[in-house]
Design a protein around this nucleic acid. Structure first.
Length: 388
DNA sequence: TCTGGGGTCCTAGGACCC
DNA sequence: TCTGGGGTCCTAGGACCC
């Protein structure tokens, strides 16, 4: 029995949400990114003045670009300074995650009204299991696209195939506003000619390694001997490469998942030194711990492992973490643990990023139900802590 | 022109236990 | 003393994704 799995990807999601708010920008190259000080100014005549990429100075990156901006070679994760070189006259808007989350909820609810088995895959993507539904695949997919458009005014692209791997590739084939349906028989014709990096899970490192081995297309990967792949990759990755190149993927659609970690991090406007900039760094550190604590409390989780992340001026990144006896969501406890971690990291160099993370999460409700305080200040009850 | 912020998963070594 | 084997937890790093 063949499954029917859809992957739905919103088209240039953040930028498209901004175009709903600023319709006068339609058709122009628009880039979303940066740190929020490029808010449009309202002029006396009621029109708005938008910042341009030209002259941008800072460490921001492109989050999303409209298709008109992509023509210039601008893409996600590119530094804004570089993007400014490519398209100085493009409009620059700050990201507004509150608005994007709102539209995310809208489009997911619209899909759920037609096909309730949904797996979240970030703010702008979902997998949908259509297997149990009646109706033609094409009809269902068109209904879903229409429902998303009616609920949000936004377009999306959908791929439908027997599994998540192929559907993810497929939703990208006819973007924007695409709809592509493939069967296993279509793999040689439609999937194999594509470059290996189109496979979700083959990133820059693996692509470079495969290229060095003379493998650039999925067809070439499919033609590689498993023993050859095992010589160059870890056993499980080699096996996975062989399977995905043949379109094999049995992963189920996961309709509910608990978070594994909650973290906050920030890149400084200028590099900071642990000693020379001690007080400003300390303030940032405390704020990050407070933010993590608030996120934990708001979402109803306790963290048992607290960790930090440092990124030095040369981009070298180190982490340190420690596991507590008692899970916590308390800002002071987190700050103390994070400080312990900090003591174990080299601090004789300039930093560009600091982060704080809570992991080994458990649900707060369960812990409270058996009498553990949020701060974990009742050591005698430690023995009754149950992990969830 | 150096490269955000929030995540997941995997690997690997050492500790520790039986 | 020259040497086991499996299982789990903890820590650190890294690839990858949106």
């Amino acid at each position: 029995m063949c499954r029917r799995i859809a992957h739905l990807d919103m088209d240039a999601f953040y930028a498209s949400v901004e175009l709903l708010r600023y319709p006068e920008l339609r058709g122009l190259p628009v880039v979303i990114g940066g740190s929020g000080n490029q808010q449009p100014a309202l002029l006396k005549d009621g029109s708005r003045h938008f910042a341009r990429l030209r002259g941008y100075a800072g460490r921001g990156v492109v989050t999303t670009a409209t298709y008109e901006a992509r023509v210039f070679g601008i893409g996600s994760a590119m530094g804004l300074m570089k993007a400014a070189q490519l398209a100085p006259d493009a409009i620059l808007l700050p990201a507004d995650f509150h608005a994007y989350r709102h539209y995310s909820r809208l489009f997911k609810a619209a899909v759920a009204s037609i096909a309730p088995r949904i797996e979240n895959h970030g703010i702008d993507e979902i997998y949908i299991d259509l297997s149990g539904l009646s109706g033609e695949t094409l009809t269902l997919a068109r209904r879903i696209k229409q429902a998303v458009r009616e609920a949000t005014g936004l377009s999306c692209s959908i791929g439908v195939t027997p599994n998540k791997l192929l559907s993810k590739i497929c939703s990208d084939l006819e973007k924007p506003d695409g709809l592509t349906i493939l069967s296993l028989a279509d793999i040689p014709g439609r999937i194999w000619p594509l470059p290996v990096k189109k496979i979700n899970g083959i990133g820059p490192k693996a692509t470079a390694k495969l290229t060095a081995l003379g493998i650039t297309t999925i067809a070439e990967l499919a033609g590689a001997e498993p023993s050859f792949l095992q010589m160059h990759f870890s056993p499980s990755y080699a096996r996975w490469l062989h399977e995905v190149s043949h379109g094999i993927d049995e992963r189920p659609v996961i309709t509910h998942a608990e978070p594994k970690s909650i973290s906050r991090e920030t890149t400084f406007e200028r590099n900071l030194h642990a000693r020379e900039d001690r007080s400003v760094l300390s303030g940032i550190f405390t704020a990050l711990c407070t933010d993590v604590a608030q996120d934990l409390q708001r979402k109803g989780y306790l963290g048992r492992t607290i960790g930090i992340k440092l990124r030095y001026a040369d981009f070298l990144t180190v982490t340190r973490d420690m596991t507590l006896a008692v899970p916590t969501a308390d800002a002071v406890t987190i700050r103390r643990a994070a400080e312990e971690c900090l003591r174990r990291a080299p601090l004789n160099r300039k930093l560009r990023l600091l982060g704080v993370r809570a992991s080994a999460l458990s649900s707060e409700k369960v812990s409270q139900g058996i009498g553990i305080s949020r701060q974990g200040e009742l050591p005698l009850t430690v023995q009754f802590v149950e992990r969830t």
